[in-house]
Design a protein around this nucleic acid. Structure first.
Length: 395
DNA sequence: CGATTTTGACCCGCGC
DNA sequence: GCGCGGGTCAAAATCG
């Protein structure tokens, strides 16, 4: 299941939030969301294997609802997540409210199940499309082995107006040094040769194809110290800055990076502070790496100029062997592992990498969720409503 | 001294 | 055709 479900995101958030009243509320509502599943005999693993596999995520209902008494509460109850729990328990003695809650739980459970089913359907379609695409790509590469490196049809659309422009035609090999402008296409699947096939001869269709074949773009939101002016987003890859620009809609400059680990790697990254909240760095990745992740460097090798900032920033765990182009995109978690890496890595490495990926994905999702005003609003609305509903002072 | 960053100039797509 | 704005280049500066 490549796409994380809502519930999954929810639990990821739970895992990352500090133990606070807010996290308790979230945890409680999360339990409410899932308890109906368990009570109906639908195991958590059936619903979402990944959730069930998270050791710190006990999905058992232990929030004081009638069917489960408190002394039956599992080990997870031992966690210091008390706070307002006592207050929550008291009103449950009232039968009508219990009934109403149960009804609502059932409704939520059904909704949850519907969403899970929809998700399954989407995933199935995705897999079908993906295999179809893979087949097309394989066929295409076979039919047209000459690729960008040939310098044939993909000419960088623009070149500096110097004598270089004359030399370019004479030195096609030099093309390989320049990441093709349109070299990564079709949903971001890294297929350098594909762009050539996509290149067309007639204007209209070509334009449309180019639009459809834009490199996969994913965004990554990273919290950054506002006093730290560097536009550095640590993602485990080596980046070389090649430009900076002040854009119209944002006073903060935008920095342009290229992957410097592999010369021909077409991945580009734009980093800019959010116009709304300058403590947030927005990193936009375009394309996918055509290589594995650089080996974790003990010092400042990954981000050479991070050394300056290293002291000011908390150490972050090394990113997994995932293409930065898509790694933190919750929409494509299944692509966290690079294709050829998946084939070449031993299974153990894959498991370890998967673990890291999940952790980082969780970080990103939590970040995204906590930064999402609509999510906050929805959460606050739902929880405050329930708190008021259950509050013993009310009546 | 090589690698990387900075920064002004240039290119190109797009809207008018 | 023109101007605007985003993206890129490449020489100079900087860093380790």
């Amino acid at each position: 299941m490549p796409l994380p479900s809502h519930a999954q995101a929810f639990f990821l958030l739970l895992q990352l939030l500090p133990r606070s009243p807010v996290s308790f509320y979230i945890e409680r509502s999360a339990a409410l969301l899932t308890c109906s599943e368990t009570s109906k005999g639908i195991s958590n693993r059936q619903m979402d294997p990944w959730i069930g596999s998270q050791p710190s995520l006990s999905l058992d209902l232990h929030v004081g609802l009638p069917p489960l008494s408190r002394h039956q509460a599992p080990v997870a109850m031992a966690k210091p997540k008390v706070l307002v729990e006592e207050n929550f328990l008291q009103p449950l003695k009232k039968e009508p409210e219990v009934a109403a809650l149960e009804t609502e739980l059932q409704r939520m459970g059904e909704e949850n199940r519907r969403l899970a089913e929809a998700l399954t359907a989407v995933a199935a379609k995705y897999e079908a499309l993906r295999s179809q695409y893979t087949g097309m790509v394989a066929a295409g590469v076979t039919n047209n082995p000459s690729s960008t490196s040939e310098g044939g049809s993909v000419s960088p659309s623009r070149k500096r107006k110097t004598s270089e422009s004359l030399d370019t035609a004479a030195a096609p090999g030099a093309q390989a040094q320049h990441p093709p402008q349109h070299g990564l296409q079709h949903g971001g699947q890294q297929q350098p040769g594909l762009a050539d096939q996509m290149e067309c001869t007639s204007g209209e269709p070509c334009k449309r194809i180019r639009e459809e074949c834009k490199p996969k773009v994913s965004k990554l939101y990273v919290h950054a110290d506002p006093s730290d002016l560097s536009l550095v987003v640590k993602d485990g890859y080596q980046w070389r800055k090649y430009g900076q620009k002040v854009t119209k809609d944002n006073p903060c400059p935008r920095a342009y990076f290229r992957c410097s680990f592999a010369p021909a790697c077409p991945v580009k990254k734009k980093v800019q502070r959010s116009a709304d909240d300058n403590t947030i760095l927005v990193a936009t990745y375009e394309g996918e790496h055509n290589h594995g992740q650089p080996p974790p460097a003990p010092s400042s090798q990954q981000q050479p100029h991070d050394a300056k900032n290293a002291a000011a920033k908390p150490p972050s765990p090394p990113r997994p062997a995932a293409p930065a182009a898509a790694p933190q995109s919750p929409d494509h978690p299944q692509q966290l592992l690079h294709h050829h890496q998946q084939k070449q890595q031993p299974q153990q490495d894959a498991v370890a990498a998967s673990e890291l990926i999940r952790r980082n994905l969780a970080e990103q999702m939590a970040m995204t969720l906590t930064r999402d005003p609509s999510f906050k609003a929805a959460l606050v609305t739902a929880l405050s409503g329930r708190i008021l509903e259950l509050s013993p002072t009310k009546d």
